[in-house]
Design a binder for these strands. Sequence first.
DNA 1: GATGAATGAGGGTTCATTCAT
DNA 2: GATGAATGAACCCTCATTCAT
Lengths: 188, 188, 188, 188
Amino acid sequence: MTEAEKRIAILNATLELIAEHGFHGAPIAKIAKKSGVSAGIIYHYFADKDDLIYGLYIHIKKEHARALLSQNLVGLPFPQNLKQMWLNAYAYYVTHPKETLFLEQYENSPYPQSLSEEVIDKYFSGLMQMIKAACSQGRMVDLPLDVIYELTFRVAAGIAKKQISGILALSDEQLDEVAEACCRAVTH
Amino acid sequence: MTEAEKRIAILNATLELIAEHGFHGAPIAKIAKKSGVSAGIIYHYFADKDDLIYGLYIHIKKEHARALLSQNLVGLPFPQNLKQMWLNAYAYYVTHPKETLFLEQYENSPYPQSLSEEVIDKYFSGLMQMIKAACSQGRMVDLPLDVIYELTFRVAAGIAKKQISGILALSDEQLDEVAEACCRAVTH
Amino acid sequence: MTEAEKRIAILNATLELIAEHGFHGAPIAKIAKKSGVSAGIIYHYFADKDDLIYGLYIHIKKEHARALLSQNLVGLPFPQNLKQMWLNAYAYYVTHPKETLFLEQYENSPYPQSLSEEVIDKYFSGLMQMIKAACSQGRMVDLPLDVIYELTFRVAAGIAKKQISGILALSDEQLDEVAEACCRAVTH
Amino acid sequence: MTEAEKRIAILNATLELIAEHGFHGAPIAKIAKKSGVSAGIIYHYFADKDDLIYGLYIHIKKEHARALLSQNLVGLPFPQNLKQMWLNAYAYYVTHPKETLFLEQYENSPYPQSLSEEVIDKYFSGLMQMIKAACSQGRMVDLPLDVIYELTFRVAAGIAKKQISGILALSDEQLDEVAEACCRAVTH
DNA sequence: GATGAATGAGGGTTCATTCAT
DNA sequence: GATGAATGAACCCTCATTCAT
């Protein structure tokens, strides 16, 4: 196992434990065991446990951003591109249940200390630009970016989480309808 | 201090600590100190810590439901009543920042084990009936209740949380616009 | 419930809890609940928990002594009287499983602090006299009383406890044989 | 100190505390202090406190069995071998007062849950075989093994315990007489 | 670099005892 | 006399982190 692989193994073990048992259920000792490394070496890759959690968050956010922005978008005009991004985001959540559960826990915990804002933004610049362009063209509601995010992608996360946990099961038609509803909310 | 008051004092202390420092930052010893009681007596009011957390959740949910359903709704037809409920929900969140932060943490943690579902539903039956009525009249999108919730009230919570933490500041006009956007999303 | 009855109720509850769950499984709160009194009042009848345990011990020892010395002994010469006492002791143990389990736990714990010696002896003076008489007549082995006790009545307790817990089941013939064996051990 | 030595140190500290102060007087913190290790590391060697107590029991039983079966027995026929074993057992008890006090407490507590039965038997197979052989030859009373144990070795433990606590002091001649008495009890 | 034994503070919880009512 | 809420020390156990090997 190379160093890079070992780092990934640690992140994966952490992800699985937190997704399944929450923050309380992911002590370093278990993470070490699950990733096949010693507890001590984890502190070679991460300064402390908070740093490990934060590292996992960044790792997943990056992956999620790529999934969101890299599929089926070429040449699509607004608002079709927004809808497609929404579907991309949703598809990522549903196919990555552990990442989704972790993300929701992390973002609703007191962990994030504004650091995330700046660090994360860079991965989503593509999305931001698209939104800003639509706003300046008057084709989107004139509301802060954070609000638009809540009205669209945050909804995708919320619904996906319910689908993951089995509370909900949407057909393709219904899913399309939700995507439309989100677009309708933020366009005139 | 009567017994009932003491129970409330414990719940309040728990709420404040969790809202400010998260679940990790709310050990029984601190809760006891903040509520002005001994650690031991907490176990007279609650079976264990989980029960205390759950008790707090129920307590807040009940309060929130009342706030949502009891103001400025008399005689309002659909969809004005939906919009007013949304504004009520939002007002509650913004004026109850600690409750809001707790709620978001709780609902995204592995604590809730579907129990809540049944227990909670009874407080929101008024809301459910309104939604079902609108659906059956064909005036609302034909999507599961959970989806409609995510498209409306969950958005209120998300935006309120950002307002609470100072990331966002909406004017009354903007807030009204968001409420409209949510209604637009779930109506044809 | 008179005071005397209440005292008995407390002793009985203590006995049952200790017999079933050991000393660890008999907190004052449970004793209070089981005996139908408040926790506080127990300290009216007993100085503290140790005193309660000791009181229970004395209570049972007295009862046991009476059972041992009061049945089917009239006119029996040695060694028939010894054998009958042995059978009496055994019968008490088997018909009083809770008392037996408590006694064994108590006498093998660090609770007894030589106090018992003096206090208990008075209940067993009848037995002592019989043994001393047989010794002085040269019909019994010349060994300390404690040794004779271990070779006879202690054996009854040990076997009874195994019978109680279901490890052992002796027929009447076998039981008689054991009684004989014990008598054989202490006579020439 | 090697790991094995540390394990022994923990067992010894536990033994001393329980022998002197009973189960109540042996909290983990004191065991740790007495063995010169931290409280936490005890859970590296034992799953929990019950496991530590049980481990100590097994450790002592094994030692006791060896002492009982390994001295001065070569070539001795029945019943001399039984008598010698009895004297071996007694000698072990008297020279190992702490082990004896612990054993008696443990075996009379609600700790043992029949598990011990099977686990322990293997250490005493030598003794069992000797007894069974004598029984089948008709040279021993036809009673269950448990009964024979109570009539012989259990008596040794009981008397030894009194000797340990200073209640009793037997001369070599008296001790021999007791051994004879026990043999007499179980032979025709 | 890698291990995992070791630490010890801090976690949740229990319980004998007290005392206001 | 009687209650049971209240105390707080003590209990068992966990865990992030360190460091000798």
